[in-house]
Amino acid sequence: MQALRIGCAGWLCALLLAVVPAPAGAADTGGAEAPGMSMVTFNLHHDREDWPARRRVILRELQALQPDAIALQEVIQKPRVRNQAAWLARRLGYDYQFVSTDPPGSAKRYGNALLTRRPVLARNEHLLAPLGDYRTVAHLRIAIDAHAVNVYATHLNERSDADGSRIRAEQVADLLRFIAATADGAPVVIAGDFNALVDAGDLSELRNHYGDSFGSVHVNTAQAPVSTLNRHYFDAPRRIDHVFFQQDQLLAREAKLLFDQPYAEGRWASDHYGVWTRLQFAPSPGSPAATTP
Rank of each mutant, 00 (worst) to 15 (best):
Q2G: 12
G7L: 00
C8V: 11
A9C: 07
G10E: 15
A14V: 07
A18F: 00
V20H: 08
A22Y: 09
G25P: 02
G25V: 08
A26W: 08
T29D: 15
G30E: 06
G31N: 15
A32D: 12
A34I: 08
G36R: 03
G36T: 03
M37Y: 15
M37V: 14
T41D: 10
D50H: 09
V57F: 06
V57I: 07
L62Q: 07
Q63V: 13
A64N: 14
D68I: 06
Q73V: 10
V75A: 06
V75C: 10
Q77M: 15
P79M: 04
R80G: 13
V81Y: 11
A85P: 07
A86F: 01
A89E: 04
R91I: 07
D95F: 04
S100F: 01
T101E: 08
D102L: 01
P103F: 01
S106A: 12
G111L: 04
N112M: 05
A113V: 00
T116I: 02
T116Q: 06
P119M: 02
V120I: 02
L121F: 00
A122M: 03
L127C: 14
P130N: 10
P130I: 00
L131F: 10
L131Q: 13
D133Y: 14
T136P: 04
V137Y: 00
V137K: 03
A138G: 13
H139C: 04
R141G: 08
I142A: 00
A143R: 00
I144N: 05
I144T: 07
V149H: 12
Y152K: 01
T154C: 15
N157C: 10
S160I: 15
S160A: 14
D161T: 05
A162Y: 06
A162S: 14
D163H: 14
R166V: 11
R168P: 05
E170F: 06
Q171E: 13
V172G: 01
A173S: 13
A173R: 12
L176T: 05
R177Y: 08
F178D: 00
A183F: 06
A183E: 05
A186I: 09
P187H: 12
V189R: 05
A191R: 01
A196Y: 03
A196L: 01
V198A: 15
A200E: 13
G201R: 11
G201S: 15
D202N: 05
E205T: 14
L206W: 04
R207A: 12
N208S: 15
H209N: 13
Y210W: 05
Y210H: 07
Y210E: 01
D212Q: 02
D212H: 03
F214H: 10
G215M: 03
N220M: 09
T221W: 10
A224I: 01
A224F: 09
S227E: 12
L229I: 02
N230L: 03
Y233F: 14
F234C: 08
A236Y: 15
P237G: 07
R238T: 14
D241C: 03
F245Y: 12
Q246P: 09
Q247M: 11
L250E: 01
L250K: 05
L251T: 14
A252K: 02
K256A: 15
D260Q: 12
Q261T: 15
R267I: 09
R267G: 13
R267Q: 11
W268T: 04
Y273I: 02
G274W: 03
G274S: 06
G274K: 03
V275E: 02
Q280M: 13
F281H: 13
F281I: 09
A282R: 14
S284N: 15
G286Q: 08
P288M: 11
P288I: 08
A289P: 02
A290M: 09
T292N: 10
T292V: 10
